[in-house]
Write a protein that binds this DNA or RNA. Structure first.
Lengths: 152, 152
DNA sequence: ACCGTCATCTGGAATGAATCAAATCTGGGG
DNA sequence: CCCCAGATTTGATTCATTCCAGATGACGGT
């Protein structure tokens, strides 16, 4: 396992360090983690790790293509380890929960811009905005019982 | 024109105030403006307007459905006045330029998630990431002449 | 196994967008 | 024309992220 991660790092010519292994493991174990949570997980494993190191590592791994950065409007950045496959996300407007969604139709039918204004498009990002199951029921409960939202 | 904007505000039961008219006019005149630019434009017209007021007004107008907020990953929020029609954006990775793109295929064929994980989806956001014409040529020039990027 | 170099990490301070809080002002209904 | 809920101002505050300068440690070469 650890050996596995080590070789993964070497393959993209990045030095193998404790923080990097820990961050990589943390993101693999927790899909869609935000930076703060990663820091917490890494510290739990290694003791002291600077805030800065986590940011550096996340950026390095993202640039190397090992991680993917997702930044839902307004919310802090999150990272996931699923890369290479063309999947998208559902984001809950209420609590920020994120879930994976595989592209319904196999290949980019309507994903080609009608007029690209001369831009060279290299990626199409698709975000489904809505309400997650938990917040939906909470909201419904609120409607009927007049209680305040539990999930804000 | 001004009368027009006044009635627009009244229709959504918002008070007609100078800052609001100015912000509304600014966004209508400049598609995809960021908050800071709006503040500049409004100040140029009214003299003194607090930073805070601009944020409040933008939020009020957005909530009222008069404006739409767009937040490309990492960049400060931007606003546009085209609302109601289902169009999307091309964003330049290099300089952050944004252009409108009308949905290529008339209706959501592949825009229905294969598995929505129980989320109640109310909007699908589509972002085309790429490089704008200016940055493309700048990049090409850089490649051949070894000059530094003009557009970073 | 040891060394030296250079990428990486540490800790603290800085930036910049956005929000909060309390006091003051004003649009527009009565 | 008066009044007050809704707007705006001022000033401070939070939060994510980045910058800086110096210490540390990974790893290719000897």
């Amino acid at each position: 396992m650890t050996t596995d991660l080590r070789s993964v790092l070497r393959e993209v010519s990045l030095r193998v360090t404790r923080p990097r292994l820990a961050v990589l493991a943390a993101v693999h174990a927790h899909p869609h983690v935000d930076t703060d949570t990663v820091t917490g997980l890494v510290r739990a494993e290694l003791g002291t790790v600077s805030h800065q190191a986590v940011y550096d590592v996340l950026r390095a791994l993202t640039n190397a293509g090992l991680l993917r950065r997702i930044q839902p409007a307004g919310a802090p950045a999150r990272y996931e380890s699923r890369v290479g496959d063309n999947h998208h996300h559902v984001v809950c407007r209420s609590c920020g929960a994120i879930a994976d969604v595989d592209c319904a139709v196999g290949h980019v039918p309507c994903l080609t811009a009608s007029d690209d204004h001369g831009f060279v498009v290299d990626e199409v990002e698709l975000v489904y905005w809505g309400t997650c199951p938990d917040c939906s029921t909470a909201r419904t409960a609120e409607m009927t019982t007049k209680h305040r939202r539990k999930c804000s």
